[in-house]
Design a protein around this nucleic acid. Structure first.
Lengths: 220, 220
DNA sequence: CATTTTTTGGCATGCTTGTGCTACTTTATT
DNA sequence: AATAAAGTAGCACAAGCATGCCAAAAAATG
């Protein structure tokens, strides 16, 4: 029966099963037995690849999820405003795959609130997300005159909005027409831009004029 | 030891313990033993008031939470715009009590995603919340010319924003300076208002004035 | 073929829970 | 005081899980 197999592929397969199980029955129901049933593998096999404890499996799966989210950061548009629109794919997932991952991540985040072992990773990821939003917003407002503190507050708002969509799309069974969500986010950003005066060519801090598509694409 | 006691008070006391336990260790760790330890009661006693099963306790506690949220609906300001600002107390809780309830409710909502027994109640509550937001927004935009469909989309946005704050305040340990949140929400609403032309009708000059048409105060 | 390594399967134990059932203690009522 | 009711406590059993440990089966390697 047993064949030679790539360990990493096996682990990915298991992680996928864990995500499925979370989506189907919630993170609290992830157990070796259920993972085994879902993958068709035996409990012993799973333990073989991860080291006896279930927590290892959970930890690995969380790593996979975080990695995938981070990878999406690289698939954003070029235009700053459009980039912000793209971020909603974290929230209103376009593919079934992304939907599953969003749900799983939400469950992980809720669990991490009371589970010190995952708290650190989750906190770091959330922080990174907030940074990305702020950095994106900064780019989108580069041709506007806005103080640092105001930008901070606006980023907070935008971040909350995205979190809200993510949360909603994870919890509502129905949900979330993507065009509606995109429309809402872009409208918000547009209004946000309009709320600040254009930085005329000669304002002290930002000497440079609006340049749309340029440079730094890594936000973290 | 045993004294004569009001059953409802006892049940409230138990519900309070359940909320505490959820806040402290997550909803998946709520167990008869832990409730008993937290209340100082014996397991048997708790079972006496709720009928043998733990789910009864959970169900009752959810009822308490929903009821309390609904009650807050009645404590809003008079001015429509200010009312919307008030709604953020669902999200950036001012009192420790409200903070606990928000956390517990978030956990219940996540659990309900995969637990049919609670799904119905939670769905109804969420729907009611969305209705409240829409109704509040309609009042806030009563002097503006906005079509029904646009209002629907704006309500979606506002709702997501509130959800995002609620979620964030539940999950971040730190969290959420209330004035910042309030500023963000009111700014959003203000910009939202400015995005629509005044309705040619009667009302004028009050685009920023806090006085209110005191209308219906019951939103559900 | 013999041996080593990888992969798989499983047993046994200890722990936590839920829950049916029973018995004991205190209070109220007549 | 007698009796019923309400409240408290706990036992016992079954089920589910994590996990330490070990052994069989299947490749790979020499």
């Amino acid at each position: 029966m047993p064949k030679r197999v790539d360990p990493d592929a096996r682990r990915e397969q298991v992680a996928e099963a864990v995500i499925d199980e979370i989506v189907a029955h919630g993170i609290r129901s992830v157990t070796l037995a259920r993972i085994a049933a879902r993958t068709g593998l035996a409990i012993g096999s799973i333990r073989h690849y991860f080291g006896d404890t279930v927590r290892e499996v959970m930890r690995f799966t969380l790593g996979v999820l975080i990695q995938r989210v981070a990878r999406r950061d690289a698939t954003l548009s070029d235009d700053p405003v459009a980039r912000i629109g793209d971020v909603i794919t974290f929230a209103a997932p376009t593919s079934e795959q992304e939907r599953r991952e969003n749900i799983a991540l939400v469950e992980y985040r809720v669990m991490a609130r009371t589970d010190p072992e995952f708290a650190a990773d989750i906190a770091a990821t959330s922080l990174a997300g907030a940074e990305v939003v702020r950095s994106l917003l900064r780019e989108a407002l580069v041709d506007r005159d806005v103080e640092e503190e105001a930008l901070h507050r606006e980023a907070l708002l935008l971040f909350a909005l995205i979190e809200g969509f993510s949360f909603s799309s994870a919890l509502f069974s129905a949900p979330l027409c993507e065009t509606d969500v995109r429309a809402a986010v872009t409208a918000t950003v547009q209004r946000l831009r309009d709320a600040y005066p254009p930085s005329g060519g000669a304002v002290e801090g930002t000497s440079r004029a609006p340049e749309a598509a340029e440079g730094s694409r890594s936000h973290i």
